[in-house]
Each structure stands twice: as C-alpha cells, then as structure tokens.
Design a protein around this nucleic acid. Structure first.
Length: 212
DNA sequence: ATCCCGAGGG
DNA sequence: CCCTCTGGAT
C-alpha cells in the first residue's frame, strides 16, 4: 500500500473518532489556554484540571497574575511537578505580556517562543488552538505513534515533524495535533500498549514493537 | 526503583 | 548533544 493511502486512511480513522477534538482543558481564551498548555507538559489533563480552577481564581489574566506571589502560584500548581520553574515562568510571562504585548497573547510564533516556559511545542498548540493558525509540532507522543504507524523512521523528533508535515495536508494540522494526542491516550499509550487493541497499529503497525 | 515530558542551560 | 528539574504513575 502506498503511504498516501495509508495517511488518508489514518486521517479517516482519526476524523471519525474525534470529529471535533476539544480544545485542551476547554480554554478558549488565549491566556488561560497558554497557561493550561504550559502546565500540562508533564502532567495529565485530568490532573491539570484539578488545580486550574484555583489558579484562575487567583488570576485569570496577566495583569493580575504578574502581581501574585510566585510562592502562591507554586502552592496551587504543586501537583503537576516542575512547579518551581513553571510558577516563575507564569509570573514572568505575565509581566512580559503586559509590558510588551499590551496584556495580549501574541499571535506570533517567535514572540510566543520568547516567553519563558514556552517552547516550540507549547507555542504551536497555542497558535493552532487559540488562533487557528495551521501549526503542527511533533512532541514525543506523536513521535512515538508516527514510528509505530510506520510513518517515520523514528530517528529524531525533528525528522518526524518534517515527515509528518510533508505527509499530512496543512488544512488537517489544526485538528490533527489533538486528534493524535487523544487517540494515543485512548488506544496507543506509551506504556502498556497493546498493538492489537489499537485500531491503527493493528492494521498498519510495524512488526515486533514490544512496549514503547 | 524507574519512567514520563518539555523547557532551558551547559 | 546531554543533562536536570518535579511528583505522580507504574
């Protein structure tokens, strides 16, 4: 089978399962979305959801957040891990948004990546989900799935991103990111993965993939 | 006891 | 490139 047919098939499966993937943690507002994505980096959505209400009650905009004590932020986001670094990032980033961007989250890849705590992947999710700009960043989850599905060589995350951007049409990118993440969590997890239980691996999976 | 994960820094 | 940072999950 040709790769393009496989890609079309995979897109079909994802589209059927997740026709309209929910924005992470249901934050449509760019600022709260940015914070939520930043926090969910090494944390499950479910866990992030347990403390974001308290965090956004403390402050749900950069003008208020920049004046909050970093220790107060840290106390709230503690369950997500990496809390010292991230509390500082949230505080700093809020101040920069106010001072350099009129308190708005910039719709600009480079400006986003200059914010502390925001790298390529977080910026990409914000661009695609908050601003609906076609952006697609490959994180290690997507990297792993692309390898399992035989869409990439598995050499590096960077190479996988190039491969997938070439294989998947740009107009699919906005939904694709979350569709793959949600699919992975449900059917194709990092650990305890059963290729036969995965609707894509069971058809297209590489042979001899063991666990992760 | 070890793994996960992205950002940042050496 | 390689390492550390956290704390929950396995």
């Amino acid at each position: 089978m040709k790769k393009s047919e496989k890609v079309a098939d995979i897109l079909n499966i994802l589209q059927k399962l997740y026709p309209k993937p929910p924005i992470p943690l249901n934050h449509k507002d760019p600022y709260t979305l940015l914070i939520a994505v930043l926090l969910s980096a090494q944390c499950t959505d479910a866990r992030v959801n347990t403390f974001t209400p308290a965090l956004f009650e403390l402050a749900d905009n950069p003008f208020d957040m920049m004046h909050k004590d970093v220790d107060d932020i840290k106390a709230i986001i503690r369950p997500c891990g990496l809390s010292p670094r991230k509390s500082k990032a949230i505080s700093e980033l809020s101040r920069i948004l106010v001072e350099k961007h009129q308190g708005q989250v910039p719709c600009d890849f480079d400006a986003l990546e200059e914010l502390p705590g925001v790298g390529h992947k977080t910026a990409s999710v914000v661009m695609s989900q908050a601003f609906e700009v076609p952006a697609f960043a490959v994180d290690t989850h997507i990297h792993r799935l692309a390898y399992r599905w035989g869409l990439s060589t598995g050499k590096s995350v960077e190479q996988t991103e190039k491969d997938l951007k070439r294989l998947f049409p740009k107009e699919t990118w906005i939904a694709l990111h979350l569709q793959i993440i949600y699919f992975g969590r449900e059917f194709c997890p990092a650990r305890g993965h059963d290729p036969q239980a995965c609707p894509i691996c069971s058809i297209y999976g590489r042979k001899g993939i063991k666990k992760s």
